[in-house]
Computed example of a mutant assay.
Amino acid sequence: MPTSPTPLAQLPVRRLTSDDLLACADLSENRGWPREEHKWGFLLTAGTGYGIDDPSGTGLLAGCVVTSYGPGLAAIGMVLVAERYARQGVGRRLMRHVLAEAGDTALTLHATPNGQPLYEELGFAETSRAEMVRGRFTFTTPAPAVPVRPATADDLQAILRLDREVFGLDRTHVLTRLPSFADHLRVAEEDGEITGFAAAWPNMDTHVVGPLVARDTDTAQALIASLAAATDRPLRTDIDVRHTTLLRWVKENGIDPVASNSVMIRSLPDLPGDWRRRFAPLTVAAG
């Protein structure tokens, strides 16, 4: 008697490696997302990928990446299910596996409106929202006169100290990859002190601004303006909606809203760190 196929909700989940990069990009493309191979490469080396192979042998049926920040927090991103397997319990199967792997570690993610009900069912709660904005920066409304310059290797330790204070956890394993991942890395400096930093990394035809960490809105504006002056590509970023002044300013400068996602967390009442100085994530997939 032939063996019956394994139900989709019981298919095994495996760890992904950098060898799966093209399969991950194919999965993105299948769901109408950009291929984002540069970002996938970063996430698969800085974090841990999980995937379900298509029983037909034609690539990945589903996948995601988890970026760990120690026992205190991990970020889930790039949760994707192939179109032909959508709404058949595959996403829930993948997420339950990730939750089991995480154990007691708190988890955070950015949820689209379509994904939010599943995450709520799995114990995630909204803590804030992020607005994705995109466009060609017009310099219509000038940035405040805060000194900004390209970062150097000598700035790395100061960047890591500031980020740990603002993010609330150690992101050394992520931030030390920025010089090779990003095309531009800027720091704001006053009286010899690093007061903020931001990167612009290539993603298809845009430069994504992230992370964006700054002591105040003026500094955040100066960092964005400096990065905009360094590229001829449109900018894209995801700004915490509580930063209303910054959002208004980028829109005055031609960066228009594209979408709004829910920032969710599980097993903690809120994200660690200081949201007032955390303006945009490196990428919504990694927090």
Rank of each mutant, 00 (worst) to 15 (best):
R215W: 07
T127W: 15
T231Y: 01
A158H: 10
V209Y: 11
E189D: 02
V146E: 03
D54W: 04
G210S: 13
A153Y: 06
P117D: 01
L11A: 01
V263M: 05
P12V: 00
P71N: 02
N253G: 05
T237S: 15
L246H: 06
Q116A: 10
S260Y: 06
L156F: 12
R266A: 02
V133G: 13
T105M: 07
G103H: 04
G135E: 02
T231G: 02
L22D: 14
A130H: 15
Y50E: 01
T206H: 14
R93D: 02
L11Y: 01
G49I: 03
A9K: 08
R149W: 07
R31Q: 15
T108W: 03
N253F: 03
L247A: 08
G77Q: 09
F167N: 04
D240Q: 15
E252V: 04
R96Q: 10
T244V: 14
Q116R: 12
S180A: 13
L162E: 09
R236F: 06
V66Q: 05
W249T: 13
Q157D: 15
R87F: 11
V250M: 07
H243Q: 14
R15Y: 02
T67G: 05
A259I: 04
V81G: 01
L178P: 12
L27D: 04
D205S: 13
N261T: 11
D183Y: 11
L27G: 04
D191N: 08
H243Y: 11
P113V: 09
V213R: 14
T244S: 15
R164V: 00
R31S: 14
R215Y: 06
H173Q: 04
F139H: 15
T245W: 10
M132C: 15
P179L: 02
L223W: 03
G77K: 12
L118P: 08
L27K: 04
F42H: 03
G51F: 09
E126P: 12
M204N: 15
A102N: 12
P7V: 00
R84I: 03
R15F: 00
T176W: 07
L27W: 01
A158K: 08
D191F: 05
R87A: 12
P2M: 03
G47N: 10
A199G: 13
A229G: 02
L107M: 14
I239G: 12
S128I: 09
V98C: 05
A130N: 15
C64A: 10
L107C: 10
S18K: 09
T283R: 08
Y119S: 03
P12Q: 00
T127P: 15
E121N: 07
E193N: 07
E83F: 06
S28P: 13
T58F: 01
A214I: 15
A125E: 12
P281F: 01
T244F: 11
T206V: 14
H243V: 05
P257S: 07
Q221R: 10
G115F: 07
L43T: 07
R161D: 13
R92S: 10
A62V: 07
D155A: 00
L271R: 13
P55G: 10
P281N: 04
T283A: 10
V65D: 11
V284C: 11
P211M: 06
A188R: 06
A46I: 01
G210Y: 13
I224F: 00
I76G: 05
Q116E: 12
L185C: 09
